[in-house]
């Protein structure tokens, strides 16, 4: 008789996120609107059932790394009041033939039985759901089987499910079709970058002009990169004096910029080209004032900058 894997604790498939710990996502208008629509739809389930519809339950987020797919899924779970399980591939995919599929089945069973329900978040979804292909080796069979198992279980799953991927075009077509909502997260626009800087620079702040200037200099940066930059700045402010480093404005910015880099395939923001010579650095008050001291209201009449799409540049080796 085949040996079955013992039932596992749902938390053993990944990391559980509590609804109370969610952060506010910083997103463009279009994405925010579609999320509000989805929430409204979920809460109007009873009315939809009357006309023979079910609220959509499965969404696929795609976008370059660091645009906030996990943050967004966590925020949605928190709005719904549900814990989120971020499934980890290493907890699911096994080296033994057939065991991966078995564990996938067990995960979905455990998720279906969970009380309160759990929002399943499958990050790096392309790892599980690549195009199936004609099998030439045993490994291909196994991989096709993983995708087939997912296809069935995703279809049958009655709970909320969000998948995220950096490579939307690697996802199997049949799998793509099983998701009712597809949201592409673009890199943040000017207004979003302003707010991301404000958030991660806390407890420091920048006056409106300097903030605007820095947001422009960070065009094409992902939220994750902006966060690294802001945190690097704060780290330097604390550690620099302890290490007796040069604490002049230009020296600090150069040190931060040289330790945090955008990936070569995504855009390089102007700040990384100019370093401390950038005009946004010259506009920056130094030492950084506390957030309460500055009135960081966004300028009213500045023309907005369009969101830069990297669609054509993505996935290049």
């Amino acid at each position: 008789m085949a040996r079955r894997t013992a039932p596992r604790d749902i938390a053993s498939y990944g990391d559980l996120f509590d609804p109370k710990e969610a952060a506010e996502p910083i997103l463009g208008r279009a994405v925010r609107d579609s999320l509000t629509e989805w929430l409204t739809e979920i809460w109007a389930a009873d009315d939809l059932v009357k006309v023979g519809l079910q609220p959509r339950r499965r969404a696929m987020f795609d976008g370059v790394p660091g645009v906030g797919k996990t943050t967004l899924a966590h925020h949605l779970a928190a709005r719904l009041g549900l814990p989120m399980l971020a499934v980890r591939p290493d907890k699911l995919i096994s080296k033994w033939v057939g065991q991966s599929s078995e564990q996938i089945g067990a995960l979905f069973d455990a998720a279906a039985a969970a009380d309160p329900p759990i929002l399943l978040f499958l990050d790096e979804f392309d790892a599980y759901a690549r195009h199936r292909r004609r099998s030439e080796q045993g490994a291909d069979d196994e991989r096709n089987m993983i995708v087939d198992t997912f296809l069935q279980r995703v279809e049958q799953h009655s709970g909320f499910l969000i998948a995220a991927t950096n490579f939307a075009d690697h996802v199997d077509q049949a799998m793509w079709r099983r998701f009712d909502i597809h949201i592409t997260l673009e890199l943040p626009g000017l207004a979003e970058r302003r707010r991301i800087i404000q958030r991660y620079l806390m407890p420091y702040g920048l006056p409106a002009d300097a903030l605007e200037s820095l947001a422009i200099a960070l065009e094409t940066a992902s939220p994750a990169l902006i966060r690294s930059f802001c945190e690097g700045l704060k780290r330097q402010i604390i550690l620099g004096p302890l290490l007796k480093l040069d604490m002049s404005r230009g020296a600090v910015i150069d040190r931060v910029v040289s330790t945090v880099h955008p990936h070569k395939d995504v855009g390089k923001p102007r700040l990384w080209s100019h370093g401390s010579q950038d005009q946004s650095v010259r506009a920056m008050p130094w030492p950084l004032p506390a957030a309460e001291e500055v009135k960081a209201e966004p300028p009213v009449c500045r023309p907005d900058v369009a969101v830069v799409s990297l669609n054509d540049r993505r996935n290049k080796p």
């Binding site: 938390a11 509590d18 814990p83």
Partner: peptide, 17 residues
Amino acid sequence: ASAPSAAGNTGSATPKP
């Protein structure tokens, strides 16, 4: 009454807030 695979385990993993 409660799914055996999940009842005992999930109870401890996701405590009801």
